[in-house]
Every structure is written in C-alpha cells, then in structure tokens.
Simulated assay, not measured.
Amino acid sequence: MSIAMATQIAPTRPAPGHAVIAITSLLIAVGMLRLLPLRAVLALAGSVQQVAPRHASLDVAREVIRARDWAAAHYPGRATCLDLSLTAFLIAAWRGRHVSWCIGCRFNPSESHAWIEVDGEPVAEPGMFDDPFHVTIRL
C-alpha cells in the first residue's frame, strides 16, 4: 500500500477501462525496463508505435498523464521517470494514439530525464522550459 505525501493531490481515478490500461501499462513498462536491455525496450516501443498511427492531441496526452499518475500512486514500488514516461507512451498506444517518448540529458548540473511530447512540446513537465533537456532518443 502506498501513502500519498501530504503535499500531493491524489490523482483522480480514470474511467474503469482506462484504469485497467494504466495499471497494465505501468506493470509492462516496469517489467520491460527491469528485465530487458534498453535496446530491446526501444525496439519493442518502436513496434508499438506502429500500432498507434494517429497523433495524440495535447488534451489526450494530459488524460494519459493523469491515468499514469493514478496508476503510479497505487504502485507499491518506486517508479522512475523512465518507467513513467514509457507507461504514458504505452497508455497512449493502447488508446490508438501516438506520443513521442523522449530520453535526454542536460549539463550543469548533469541530469538525465525521460518524458513524453506532443508536437515537440513536453507534456506535464514543469520546469522543462527554463533549462531544457537535449533529446538523445525520440520514438
């Protein structure tokens, strides 16, 4: 059982079908990233991308993020940005939409990060515009 921090607002539960997709996507993402080499994860994600030919709108991408955040709040382990961004990518694909899955870095301070984008803009990433990350991999 996870306990939300006092400063966090509990994410609202998505529609029942979307909740199942969100939980399943999180478990698949965590499993893939823990069990497979990154090159295999990228290859699988690239093949999933072919299933979702329609680009997501910003509103759909925000719904995906809300569903992902709800699933992550109920996940008993620690989910990193790589896990969460892949989860959002998979949720969008299950819904027949495509978002870009990005992995990048920035310097001074040296950091890496993963996120999703719609039309080249990060979705639900506060602070990304002040000191942007350089995209290393984009699917």
Rank of each mutant, 00 (worst) to 15 (best):
P37R: 09
I9A: 14
S2K: 14
F89P: 03
R106A: 13
P11Q: 01
M128R: 14
S100P: 04
L84D: 02
A4Q: 09
L86S: 00
Q49W: 09
R34M: 07
G104E: 04
F107W: 11
V118S: 01
I65N: 00
S85F: 00
C105W: 14
Y75A: 07
N108M: 13
P37E: 07
H18P: 02
A67C: 06
H98I: 01
A4F: 06
A43K: 10
F129N: 14
A6Y: 08
R54Q: 15
V41K: 04
L90P: 01
D69I: 05
A67Y: 05
T12C: 09
G46V: 05
I65G: 06
Q8A: 15
E63T: 10
E121L: 09
M32G: 03
A72I: 12
A67Q: 04
A93T: 04
F89I: 01
W115L: 01
I28W: 13
I103K: 01
G17D: 15
S112Y: 12
W101T: 01
L82H: 03
D130M: 12
A56L: 01
D119C: 02
P132L: 10
A40P: 00
G31Y: 04
M128V: 08
M32R: 05
P53R: 09
H98S: 15
H113Q: 07
V118K: 04
C102N: 06
A45G: 15
A40G: 08
V99N: 01
V48G: 00
A43H: 06
A124C: 13
D83S: 02
C105K: 12
L44Y: 07
M32Y: 12
V60M: 14
P16M: 08
C102Q: 03
I103N: 02
H113N: 04
Y75W: 15
M5T: 08
D83W: 03
P14G: 08
A22T: 03
G120C: 04
I3F: 14
R68I: 05
A56V: 02
V48M: 13
A72Q: 06
L42A: 12
P126K: 03
F133R: 04
F129Y: 11
R97I: 04
L42H: 12
N108R: 12
P109T: 07
I21P: 02
P109Q: 04
A79Q: 02
V41T: 08
D130G: 15
R34K: 15
V60K: 10
A88L: 03
F133H: 12
L27S: 09
I3E: 15
W70R: 04
A61K: 05
L84F: 05
L86E: 00
P126F: 05
S85I: 04
V60P: 01
I137P: 03
H113R: 00
L38D: 00
T136E: 11
V30I: 13
T87H: 05
F107D: 12
P126Q: 05
I103A: 06
E125H: 08
D69A: 05
R39W: 11
L84C: 07
R13Y: 10
S47C: 11
A73H: 03
V20T: 12
